[in-house]
Amino acid sequence: MNMSVNLTNSSMSHDNPGPLGRHVASAVVYGLVLAVGLPLNTLSLWILLRNHGFRSSCAVLMVNLAVSDLLLALSLPLRVYFYATFRWPFGAATCTAAIVMFRVNIRTSSIFITLISVDRMIALVFPLRSRYLRTSACAFKCCSVVWILISILCIPEINRLYSFVKHSTLCFENQTQPEGSVISILQAIFFLILLLVNIVSTVVVIIVLKKRPSTGAAKVNNKMNVILIFVVNMLVFIIFFLPFTLQLLRYNNDKKIRALVCLASVNCCLDPLIYYFSLDSFWQDKGKRQTDVGTHSLSRSLERF
Rank of each mutant, 00 (worst) to 15 (best):
A73G: 08
L76K: 01
T8Y: 08
G53S: 06
N51A: 01
R22P: 00
A27Q: 06
S26E: 11
A73N: 12
P19W: 04
D69T: 13
L78E: 01
S68T: 14
G21E: 13
L43Y: 12
S57R: 03
L76R: 00
L70Q: 10
L74I: 05
L49Y: 12
P77S: 11
L72W: 02
H23N: 14
L74W: 04
V60S: 00
L76W: 01
V67K: 06
N64I: 09
L78G: 08
S44K: 10
L45I: 13
T42R: 05
L48F: 02
V29W: 00
L61N: 10
A59P: 01
P17D: 03
T85H: 08
S75Q: 02
V36I: 15
F82G: 00
R79H: 14
L20Y: 11
F86I: 12
G31V: 02
S10T: 12
L40P: 01
F82A: 12
V80L: 07
L65E: 00
L74D: 01
L65F: 00
A35D: 07
R87G: 03
T8Q: 07
L78Y: 11
G31T: 03
L48Y: 01
F82D: 04
L76T: 01
S13D: 15
G31D: 04
G53C: 08
A59V: 10
A35Q: 05
